[in-house]
Design a protein around this nucleic acid. Structure first.
Lengths: 331, 331
DNA sequence: CTGTTAGCGCTTTCAT
DNA sequence: ATGAAAGCGCTAACAG
């Protein structure tokens, strides 16, 4: 059933039917009603490609998620996707999911733009200096970045203040009297990891604590990494008395190591919680302090910006969300 | 830069350029080389919509993931997506990510098909009797189902044998001498949950164990559910001496409850592990038996079938993967 | 081997 | 308020 068929059924021209369906003002109410009624009755659905070809936009937003360091999405990304899907679905935008290694990142963007496969792009976890951002800004293509990068080009982005999160986490521990802190962070190529570490370092500076390079670990955000590095550090000659973790997963592993070594009572833990519903710090851990944030909510904002940016002369906006430090009850 | 422009640059007709680019045999090697060279040099990318309109296929596979019981993807789904993305990306197929509540599920399928937004559909976690499967089969639209449903219509699907997984889990525990088993499973509307429970029940039957309805719990796959129900059951007058969990997340919660109640030594645990890299049974749990499976690998097979089914007269195939029962070392 | 022509299904001037 | 006609950028018959 195509537009033409529908028009024939109704004894109208395709033009009129198209206008009726798209709520053009010049169509009479009667006609519009008739047309819409017939459309539902015949189960007519406009061809996305044909419409896209004619109108230049196709109702698709591309979401580019990182493919590294391994070939899987971490749980935060998926929570992020859900938030995006929620908002974009609400306005009839489809989501094109693209998993892209950073090496081919620029090419992917070019491809999406020039092949017209999407009307806007969401970039997730940018590099500290991200060539895709430069390119998209230059091309004046609608895009939003989830994550604050240092790319010196004006662009719309939303992020949690990871530097603050890192800073507050460490400060809290220093102020509680800890002298030596271990930090188990994520892969260094992500801007937000560098931000977290910058925050940590600046707290270290304030307390004139020597930054022991061994004590700031960059690895994957995984249970394994949390476990192994915590264990290793605790077995040091002068082990840390407190740990900062960049993710809940590494925290789970870390806590396990701490328990195994019977260091529960002497070790403090601060972690970051992105509030994924099936994996929540409050549920899993007892004696822990968290910097908390709903990644789902952030994703919704990202999507709203994406929609906004599709209007080519929309203003560039940035949002940096302050994480809060929350103590989750003592055991 | 459109095809026509490229043709003009080269002093050729659009047709020839198109044929050269698409490796039609009748184009001379020289021309082909020249054209491809020019295409790269000018950064030409064919318009996806125009091509789609002309050719009828647009290089997109829609992946429909369930929206319920809550508005987020669980970690397995995301691992699944990664596997799909891996394979589909390899053949230049884009992924349209659709989060759909089951109520509107049929409509979503109709929409995707008739608007021509995708060349194939992957359905994830079908209902026991899923109207989408009936519809897609009837419409002879290429589709693959991840998950064995009981929909009595021939269709291509891939699944882990959840019934076997449930059966073996319970059998193992009965054979180890346990009399009363608690099962913490997922939301009942999913076919695979019913399969697991059917397997459990049939093991119960073999051992003439009365199935206490209180001991088979359906809730979300989450840490919370695992924790709460385990705790509740353990506080019963005659508590279970063994637990079967449908997911790693509920297991994490369950183990926590078991430890809190100091029942570690007297309680056996069997769980299902989908081998998500950042959350692995082997890492997290010590004294546990698992039915193990790589959901990532399954997803890759699903994607391969999806590609295969795009050839409209491809044969219908089904795959049921046998889960293995693995003991993960005693503590 | 290359070019001409006619669409794919829709939107959008421009007439009426 | 409605219709005719011209594309959107590409591919696929059909010539040559």
């Amino acid at each position: 059933m195509k537009l033409r068929d529908l028009a024939n059924e109704l004894g109208l021209s395709p033009t009129t039917v198209s206008r009726a369906l798209n709520d053009y003002p010049e169509v009479s109410d009667r006609t519009r009603r008739l047309v819409k009624q017939a459309a539902t009755r015949w189960g007519y659905r406009p061809s996305a490609t044909a419409r896209g070809l004619a109108v230049g936009r196709i109702g698709v937003t591309a979401v580019i998620v990182p493919k590294e360091p391994a070939s899987y999405f971490d749980p935060d990304i998926t929570e992020f996707l859900a938030g995006i899907a929620e908002v974009l679905g609400g306005v009839g935008q489809d989501i094109l999911l693209i998993q892209s290694a950073p090496a081919s990142g620029l090419d992917v963007c070019k491809d999406v733009i020039e092949s017209g496969r999407a009307d806007a792009i969401v970039i997730c976890h940018p590099r500290s200096d991200d060539e895709r951002i430069r390119f998209l800004a230059e091309a004046n293509f609608p895009f939003v970045v989830y994550g604050k990068s240092r790319t010196p080009v004006p662009h719309t982005w939303v992020d949690i203040d990871h530097r603050q999160a890192g800073f507050r986490s460490a400060m809290y521990l220093f102020e509680s009297g800890h002298q030596k802190i271990g930090a188990i962070e994520g892969p260094g190529q992500f801007a937000f990891v560098e931000e977290r570490i910058a925050g940590l370092t600046s707290a270290f500076d304030q307390f004139a604590a020597r930054v022991d390079p061994n004590c700031i670990v960059k690895d994957t955000f995984s249970d394994r990494a949390g476990y192994e590095h915590t264990r290793r550090l605790l077995n040091d000659a002068s082990p840390p008395t407190a740990f900062v973790y960049g993710s809940l997963l590494s925290t789970i592993g870390g806590i396990r190591a701490i328990r195994e070594l019977d260091a529960e009572d002497s070790t403090a833990v601060v972690t970051h919680d992105n509030a994924v519903p099936y994996l929540n710090a409050r549920n899993i851990l007892c004696e822990v302090t968290v910097t908390s944030f709903s990644i789902y909510a952030v994703a919704q904002r990202v999507a709203q910006h994406a929609i906004r940016m599709m209007d080519r002369n929309a203003a560039i906006e940035t949002e940096l969300w302050e994480p809060q430090l929350i103590s989750v009850g003592e055991p």
